[in-house]
């Protein structure tokens, strides 16, 4: 298989993956009786919720509509129209409107479409303050923090292997890896907000100040920083033992040149490749931190929408996350193919 064929295949494979994700999410969402209207049982009026169901097509069957099919047959309509009646069900209708680029209406944000809820900004705030922009900002900041913190730490501990510096960094890495982020979040909130009093989360326009992003960025990025440090260290140690480094030293190159030009360039390949999946992981994993720090991003939106049964928002966000993960994995496969021609395209890994 040529490289182009391989890439085309991998790209096309994303389509059935996303379809399956949509199907499974749809089934899981509808596994529970009830719907978006009956969250508050005191307010729900049977007649109103029936009317709402009708308006949004939630009274239709989930997957297939044999009743409408029989109706169409009785009325003597053609095969195509009867077929259309048969799949006039919630799932197919959602998929078809999705294919037209319509994410549907939100059931809980009154009068707003899902794309408006996710991508829209209120008043005339900058675009990065939309729900998705907020999460993207947090994810990118956390990734930058992780790389800026993890890579130098990994390099230093590899260059000073088995010294006090190495062990100290190993200790930090271990803590960063093991501590659950909700514990880390609690710790930082208590220290900075309650004890030192330097942060006041209740402030209006709090997230417009750049200082506000410090804590969630650190909490979100710490495990990734720890992983980046481990990866860099292992990769550096691997490179340091290789023949071309010995050659570089043997021909009398200075230590600076050896480290910067020969070691780093090769040692950082796995770390750079890891950045894509790391960003996907940070964006999908940010919901706990968003929930804890009151960041109004899509993670927080997802958590709220699950408890409020806002079906269309849940679907749209799950599909977005799945697409992000699929693209990150695709990028890794392609980059590895270019970086290392020895990897045979199309041959599945063991």
């Amino acid at each position: 298989m040529t490289r182009t064929q391989f890439i085309i295949r991998r790209v096309l494979w994303i389509i059935p993956v996303l379809f399956s994700v949509a199907l499974i999410t749809f089934i899981v969402m509808h596994a529970t009786p009830g719907g978006p209207w009956d969250v508050d049982p005191n307010k729900a009026d049977r007649r109103i919720s029936d009317q709402l169901d009708k308006t949004f097509g939630l009274n239709k069957p989930l997957f297939f509509n044999p009743e409408a099919f029989q109706q169409a047959q009785k009325e003597g309509r053609g095969v195509i129209e009867s077929g259309q009646a048969f799949i006039d069900a919630q799932f197919e209708n959602y998929i078809f409107s999705l294919l037209r680029g319509d994410l549907g209406p939100s059931y809980r944000y009154r009068g707003r479409s899902v794309s408006d809820v996710i991508f829209g900004v209120q008043d005339d705030k900058p675009a990065w303050q939309s729900k998705i922009g907020t999460t993207a900002t947090l994810g990118i900041l956390a990734l930058l923090f992780a790389l800026a913190f993890g890579i130098p730490m990994g390099i230093i501990s590899a260059l000073k292997q088995n010294t006090a510096v190495d062990y100290a960094s190993l200790f930090v890495v271990t803590i960063g890896y093991g501590i659950p982020s909700f514990v880390m979040g609690i710790l930082l909130i208590i220290v900075f907000a309650v004890w030192l009093g330097v942060i006041n989360v209740i402030e209006i326009d709090y997230w417009q100040r750049w200082q506000s992003w410090f804590l969630p960025t650190i909490v979100l990025g710490l495990p990734t920083a720890a992983f980046a440090a481990r990866l860099t260290r292992a990769s550096m140690l691997d490179v340091m033992r290789s023949d071309y480094i010995r050659t570089a030293r043997a021909k009398g190159l200075g230590e600076r040149v050896v480290v910067l030009r020969h070691m780093l360039r090769n040692a950082l390949i796995p770390v750079v490749t890891f950045a894509g999946p790391a960003l996907a992981g940070l964006v999908t994993g940010s919901f706990i931190i968003e929930n804890q720090f009151g960041v109004a991003g899509i993670g927080d939106l997802f958590v709220r929408s699950v408890s409020r049964r806002d079906y269309t928002v849940i679907m749209a966000l799950t599909l977005f996350y799945a697409l992000l993960i699929a693209l990150a994995n695709l990028a890794v496969d392609i980059i590895y193919g270019f970086l290392d021609p020895r990897i045979q395209m199309g041959k599945k890994e063991g």
Binding site: S20, I24, T25, G281, G285, F287
Partner: peptide
């Protein structure tokens, strides 16, 4: 396909 699900978030769902 299972790997394409957003990990802990999907567990949450």
């Amino acid at each position: 396909i299972l790997f394409a699900f957003p990990g802990l978030l999907f567990t949450f769902l």
